[in-house]
Nucleic acid binder design. Structure first.
Length: 467
RNA sequence: GGCGGCAUAGCCAAGCGGUAAGGCAGAGGACUGCAAAUCCUCCAUCCCCGGUCCGAAUCCGGGUGCCGCCUCCA
């Protein structure tokens, strides 16, 4: 089976065929860097990271672009409130973004362009839209003329008239049509501004993505991702701008993730019901958050709760334990006879994993296959004193392959080494030999306080860090 | 008003026409000096009502409930 993705443009699941064979041009909307991001924002970041990794794992060369919106009303307001400049604010929260994103195991994009570094490109595309009659200038503002693009609404499946009648936007005298949107905004005196043919100003929100996507990926890109709330107006407007400017189809596959909910409501900055990743990290390992976000299909809403994270933590521990046990067994046991049951289980799960991921990135289904292998490995390790080299190798290869996409544990080795801990373990082993269980338990408790968990096995004690 | 999503065990969650994956929690048992980890066993007929079909959680019609977008928003 080949990879199929649900395309919001056609509202159908389609076989994925990139424009250029073997290569994928992938753009996803990044954060506006005026604050820490919350776990709802983290959902697309993690999701599209996994999609990108999966595409790479099945052999595609992926150019992955994620922008930073570093100039807009919110940036200006926040900078004013905190008494720093907009660029300072942007630099700070780009750094904070990377700290959280790195902790979530999100790979750096191929490129992370910033809106304010792309003014030439933005001005170029706005000029072009004016030239081609798709935009008009009004006192330093430039607006896109929605009526000049008959296909407007094709992503959100809304006719222009429906949009007009449902519009809750205020009537703006400067616009020809209430649906027209700003490509360029004249700046007020104290605001950051850039020189342009229309005077000093700054770009509208939508135009930066069109400019950056086009500059780095070309007129037509394969995948554009983002949260469902961006479908309208953001992505609809991107399409209008890009397609009017280039005359080409802007995006082949539009992918949107469903929201993260809290108390049956969408988590959002404006509702104030958000939990930042930075904050959750104080209580949970960020990879637990990552697991949690991948435990449901990306087009289904997911409900945030402490219980949900607790469950994710236990599940993730089960996977990690298995990987640790497996590596421990290889180092401390002797090979034994073949175990066909193990090999077969891995083979079956491996196929199931691929089928699930090929089916519109069904991460939840894929995880089920991972646990099938976990169970098979555990059973094998329980039923044998040694280990089946072939079976264990295939299981390990599978787990490593999955991990290259899901990113649940450090790939090198899960086995820890630490002089101090190893010393205490040796002392404990000696104590246990002499049936000095008091001392033995003291050492275990001592390490437990440091988050080190000891497990006794037939091959001696091993330890791991609490997730 | 327009467009769209969701409803599967105590909780989370796959499945999308062939007789309910997986995880968490729980109960009992095994192993252990005690633990932990692990193993074994147990734990659902899929919101309701009709219909199509040999066969439906899966398709169609009608309900009920919840949510989202149409304004900044991942």
């Amino acid at each position: 089976m080949a990879l199929a993705v649900y395309n919001d443009l056609t509202r159908k699941k389609e076989t994925f065929e990139p424009i250029e064979k073997g290569k994928v041009k992938f753009y996803t909307c990044g954060p506006t860097v005026y604050d820490f991001f919350h776990i709802g924002n983290a959902r697309p970041f993690v999701l599209f990271d996994v999609f990108r990794r999966y595409l790479e794992s099945i052999g595609y060369e992926v150019t992955f672009v994620q922008n930073f919106t570093d100039i807009d009303d919110k940036m200006i307001r926040r900078a004013n409130e905190t008494g720093i400049t907009v660029p300072e604010l942007a630099d700070k929260f780009i750094a904070e973004y990377f700290e959280d994103a790195d902790s979530l195991g999100i790979k750096r994009a191929t490129l992370h362009p910033r809106a304010t570094h792309e003014m030439d490109e933005i001005i170029k595309i706005v000029s072009k839209l004016i030239e081609k009659g798709h935009a008009y200038e009004r006192n330093g503002d430039v607006y896109f003329s929605v009526s000049s693009f008959p296909e407007y609404g094709k992503l959100s499946k809304q006719g222009i008239d429906d949009l007009r009648s449902g519009a809750r936007i205020e009537v703006d005298e400067r616009k020809n049509d209430p649906l027209d949107f700003a490509l360029w905004k004249a700046s007020k005196p104290e605001e950051p501004s850039w020189e342009s043919p229309w005077g000093k100003g700054r770009p509208g929100w939508h135009i930066e993505c069109s400019a950056m996507a086009t500059k780095y990926l070309g007129n037509s890109i394969d995948i554009h991702g983002g949260g469902s709330d961006l479908i309208f107006p953001h992505h609809e407007n991107e399409i209008a701008q890009s397609e009017c400017a280039s005359g080409c189809q802007f995006v082949k596959y539009w992918l949107h993730n469903a929201y993260l909910m809290i108390d049956k409501e969408k988590m959002s900055k404006s509702l104030g019901n958000f939990m930042t990743v930075r904050n959750i990290r104080k209580k949970f390992n960020p990879l637990v958050i990552r697991y949690f976000l991948l435990s449901a299909h990306y087009r289904s809403p997911i409900n945030f709760s402490k219980e949900g994270l607790d469950q994710a933590q236990s599940a993730l521990e089960r996977i990690n334990n298995c990987y640790t046990d497996l590596n421990f067994a290889v180092l401390n046991r002797k090979p034994c006879g073949k175990d066909d049951a193990l090999s077969e289980a891995v083979l079956k799960a491996s196929k199931g994993y691929t089928d699930a991921m090929d089916d519109d990135f069904n991460t939840a289904g894929a995880l089920g296959c991972v646990f099938d292998v976990v169970r098979a490995v555990n059973v094998h390790l329980t039923e044998n004193n040694g280990f089946c080299e072939e079976g264990i190798k295939s299981a390990k290869d599978f787990l490593v392959k999955v991990n290259s996409v899901f990113g649940f544990f450090p790939p090198e080795s899960s086995l820890n080494s630490d002089e101090e801990i190893d010393g205490l373990l040796a002392e404990r082993a000696e104590a246990r030999k002499c049936k000095n269980f008091k001392r033995s338990d003291e050492i275990r408790d001592l390490l437990a306080e440091k988050g080190i968990i000891i497990e006794d096995t037939a091959q001696g004690a091993r330890w791991k860090r609490q997730i």
